[in-house]
């Protein structure tokens, strides 16, 4: 099978001007991925499926990933001219707010040519209002339920999905529980063995100090 760069070149040759970026995977698995722009994502997916040298006809896994915004502190060494005319290296810390986004990841294999995986990714603009992505269900039917699951748990809206409803949670549910900032409902009334985060939550149900409760926890 071609390397990820070769696949990118194939795509760019077919779709000039398409946004295709190679995302390196630094881990030992070295399963690198292609980040696709929204505009041509579905056409590129169709190309990957039908191109005879690739024939990625099997979309094995589709999933979401939540990347909340985070503060990145970068330390750079800057030469600062000193008053006496010499230059001195000074460490400068710049804080940069990396904007958050939601990501959909697809693992593609070829059943015809028996190779893979090729990983493609799509990213939303942010985590609040620009959360739509083109659906790849029309290309691979296997995404049908998986994209519904991503919609349910992460809140990515897939445009062009034939039946985008909640799948695992009930329809009235409002939250997206797999997001990193999800706060679960408080049902910690009975936690006999709490520690760390659970202890903090269970404390909300303890009686006010000074009541008759046993302080050391022995029953």
């Amino acid at each position: 099978m071609q390397s990820i760069e070769q696949i990118r070149d194939l795509i760019v040759a077919r779709f000039p001007g398409a946004e295709v970026t190679v995302i390196q995977n630094p881990g030992p698995a070295a399963q690198h991925s292609l980040l696709l722009g929204h505009a041509q994502a579905r056409d590129i997916a169709l190309f990957l499926r039908d191109e005879p040298s690739l024939k990625l006809d099997f979309c094995s896994n589709a999933t979401g990933v939540d990347w909340p915004e985070k503060e990145i502190v970068e330390t750079t060494k800057v030469k600062v001219a000193q008053p006496d005319g010499t230059e001195k290296l000074v460490e400068q810390k710049t804080k940069r707010l990396q904007p958050g986004y939601l990501e959909a990841v697809y693992h593609l294999y070829s059943m015809a040519l028996k190779h893979g995986p090729v990983v493609i990714r799509l990213r939303t603009g942010n985590r609040t209002d620009a959360v739509s992505l083109p659906s790849l269900t029309p290309v691979w039917r296997s995404c049908e339920f998986q994209e519904r699951e991503i919609f349910d748990l992460f809140g990515i809206v897939f445009e062009g999905h034939p039946d985008l409803r909640r799948i695992l949670m009930w329809d009235e549910f409002k939250d997206h529980p797999m997001r990193k900032d999800y706060v679960e409902p408080d049902d910690y009334e009975w936690e006999p063995t709490p520690h760390d985060a659970v202890l903090t939550k269970a404390k909300g149900h303890y009686p006010a100090p000074g009541s008759t409760a046993n302080a050391e926890g022995g029953m």
């Binding site: 049902d187 009334e189 936690e191 149900h205 009686p207």
Partner: peptide, 16 residues
Amino acid sequence: KNPNLYEPPTLVRPDK
């Protein structure tokens, strides 16, 4: 929960 049915005893655990 059904408050008439589910009445767990309170078991206060101190900070670790």
